[in-house]
């Protein structure tokens, strides 16, 4: 469903927060991302829908490439280049040659006119076959934020219908009918016409979740959905997420709720200092952690 390949993220201030992350999320899988504060969990999640644009690397949604990638460093372009052919002819393994070219930026030398034409054709094809407009891709990737981010200027109902109607995915009537059904599902249909400021945190977050569901997403991204909640409201939000997981929704969840991750996730990803140090099933991660940083982390949070 989602593949991030060799993601590197350096912020404007020069700090590199993700240092080459590979991560694959299968359809129907629930993946929990855990790790210490500041390790890059949110940044990784935000790279998946390009709220944060990776400095290097690729983000794929199914078979579509989401982020603009330096064309000269694209694998297919490299493979068509004379530099690559020369290296391979010299006895180098193909994969090693690609790594070497990327690393040493060997393609940055100017191309001959013929080569240029060839690359252009490859790039055009690449773009045509693989690329998708990010705004279209995001329609299928729901996101839930730590601080809910319900639209303050709109009623609950309008929060749920704005995007489907604006993007012409549904008529206003359809969108409202669907929204009411979603609100009914979480027992908040009586809140349809109030503004978000009158709601409790738990109510806000459940509405934020169904706002994302109103787009019929293929995958849902959660960034610490319960961290800003009073303890007594955490349960209602986690219960809703468990329901979604049981229904087969593909979910990526950044969380500090280890019990929840253990119970619901199919796969746990442990990230530390911008690197995925270990990933595996809940049993592997919680009962048989191998990485010393993970062992240390678990001893603190469990």
């Amino acid at each position: 469903m989602i593949s991030v390949k060799n993601i590197i993220k350096t912020f404007e201030d020069g700090v590199t927060v993700l240092k080459g992350v590979d991560c694959h999320i299968e359809k129907g899988e629930v993946v929990a991302i855990i790790g210490p504060s500041g390790s890059g969990k949110s940044t990784l999640l935000r790279c998946m829908n390009l709220l944060s644009v990776p400095t290097f690397g690729e983000v794929w949604l199914k078979d579509k490439l989401l982020n603009p990638v330096d064309p000269y460093l694209h694998t297919e372009v490299i493979e068509a280049s004379n530099t690559y052919k020369k290296l391979v002819a010299g006895g180098m393994d193909g994969a090693d040659a690609i790594v070497k070219i990327k690393k040493e930026d060997l393609l940055n030398e100017k191309f001959s006119a013929a080569e240029g034409k060839e690359y252009k054709a490859i790039l055009k094809k690449l773009y045509k076959d693989n690329h998708i407009d990010i705004n279209v891709a995001r329609q299928k990737m729901g996101m839930v934020f730590q601080h809910f981010n319900l639209f303050n200027n709109l009623t609950v109902l309008d929060n749920l219908t704005l995007a489907p109607v604006e993007l012409k995915l549904k008529s206003k009537e359809e969108a409202e009918k669907n929204a009411m059904a979603l609100l009914k599902r979480i027992g908040l249909e009586d809140k349809a016409n109030v503004y978000p400021s009158t709601l409790s945190g738990g109510q806000k977050q459940r509405i934020a979740i169904v706002r994302a569901l109103a787009m019929d997403p293929d995958v849902m991204l959660f960034d610490e959905p319960t961290s800003a909640l009073d303890p007594e409201m955490v349960g209602e939000v986690l219960d809703l997420m468990k329901q979604l997981a049981a229904e087969g929704m593909t979910m990526v969840i950044v969380t500090h709720e280890m019990g929840f991750a253990r119970e619901v996730a199919d796969k746990i990803v442990f990230i530390d200092e911008g690197i995925i140090k270990e990933q595996g099933t809940p049993d592997e991660i919680f009962n048989h952690p191998k990485d010393p940083r993970l062992q240390d982390f678990l001893s603190k949070v469990l």
Partner: peptide
């Protein structure tokens, strides 16, 4: 206006102008 409002809009697939 909180940046989260913009991010929520963009995450739903709305463009910057909308």
């Amino acid at each position: 206006v909180d940046i989260g409002q913009t991010e929520a809009g963009r995450a739903l697939g709305l463009n910057g102008r909308t």
